[in-house]
């Protein structure tokens, strides 16, 4: 019997997940497809934040800022320069890589709590910066920028929502593949070593300054790519979409999904995408009350998140004696 946690079990699980992801848009309404697309963009952003906070232990309460930069880069390129939507995504990624690296340099001197403070300030300042009148020519000020939804190319028999879904799915798979390759080897181990024992890591030859600032950059790149995709999917960017609460939403995603877990990013993304939909019926404030409760409850009851729970469940099934 294939073990759930063995390499075969994982491969089968991944194949099933991908198969489901490919079939779903043909079964669901276009609104549900749109929601799934936006959950995928969240998943990419969560991978970014998780690399920084989960693996490397640098707390960021301001990743909404990088999401905003990615979104605005994509929107401005499409709106002002007529760049095709697919070409804006790598540009957004590179701009955020640079921005994250630059913010990571001073952040090197800040540990734990103070980094949280600095990024908290960044999150609060972002909407105001986007509204700044000297940037208005580019950002469109409070009104923001409206962009057009792309059509499926090559005459594929897909409607706009379905095409965008598959486009996003392809990029999500690519980004997860990149993240896995980055984290499964030497670099991933160095990141964890820095999180757990910085002094010991340094003694073993890990260049802490380089790794920490690069991690900030790479993390911002993932989040920026997600931001660009998010802008294309929602077809609109405006300063008030990128408040502190976006950064907190991302934090909720990695905590509920599972810190330092790639599959956790998917569970977290589904959680932050669909819980507000369910809770909105109770009250406008209810989704946030639920987010808050989950944040605290996860820290007490399941610090490894949904991914950790699933792993524990699979391990238990593996250990169970084979049936008759």
């Amino acid at each position: 019997m294939a073990r759930l946690l063995g390499p075969d079990g994982r491969r089968v699980g991944l194949a099933l997940l991908l198969l489901a992801a490919c079939v779903l848009p043909f079964l669901l309404s276009s609104y549900r497809t749109f929601q799934l697309t936006s959950a995928l963009t969240y998943a990419i952003a969560l991978v970014g934040l998780n690399i920084l906070t989960g693996w490397n232990g640098q707390i960021s309460l301001g990743h909404g800022a990088f999401y905003a930069i990615g979104a605005y880069v994509a929107a401005i390129l499409m709106d002002r320069f007529g760049v095709p939507y697919w070409a804006t995504i790598p540009v957004a990624g590179f701009v955020c890589l640079g921005a994250g690296y630059l913010f990571g340099l001073p952040a090197l001197r800040l540990e734990g709590l103070y980094l949280a403070l600095a990024t908290f300030a960044l999150a609060l300042a972002t909407p105001q910066l986007l509204k700044w009148k000297h940037l208005e020519e580019w950002t469109g000020g409070v009104q923001g920028i409206v962009i057009l939804k792309p059509d499926a190319p090559f005459g594929l028999p897909l409607d706009q929502d379905q095409w965008l879904y598959f486009f996003t799915l392809a990029i999500t798979v690519l980004m997860f593949w990149l993240a896995r390759n980055l984290l499964a080897g030497r670099i991933g181990r160095a990141l964890v070593a820095i999180r757990e024992q910085p002094t010991a890591a340094e003694a073993m030859g890990v260049d802490i300054a380089f790794y920490k600032s690069m991690t900030f950059g790479v993390s911002a790149m993932f989040t920026g790519v997600a931001g660009a995709l998010g802008a294309i999917v929602i077809q609109f960017v405006a300063p008030d979409s990128f408040t502190l609460f976006l950064s907190i939403t991302l934090l909720v995603g990695i905590v509920v999904g599972g810190l330092a877990s790639l599959s956790g990013a998917i569970w977290g993304a589904l959680f932050i995408q669909f819980i507000p939909n369910v809770a909105d019926h109770i009250s406008k404030a209810a989704p946030w009350a639920i987010y808050g409760l989950f944040l605290i409850a996860c820290m007490y009851l399941m610090p490894t998140g949904v991914a950790g729970l699933l792993r524990a469940a699979a391990a238990r099934l593996d250990r169970a004696p084979p049936g008759p």
Binding site: G57, G112, K284, A285, A286, W288, A289, L293, I296, M299
Partner: peptide, 27 residues
């Protein structure tokens, strides 16, 4: 309960508290 937990856990609890107070007041 998180007195002796790592900084990350404490910050997350603080943010949870922030969000809960904000939403309860709004509610």
């Amino acid at each position: 309960p998180v007195e002796k937990a790592p900084v990350l856990a404490v910050v997350i609890v603080f943010i949870g508290l922030l969000v809960i107070l904000n939403s309860v007041a709004g509610w």
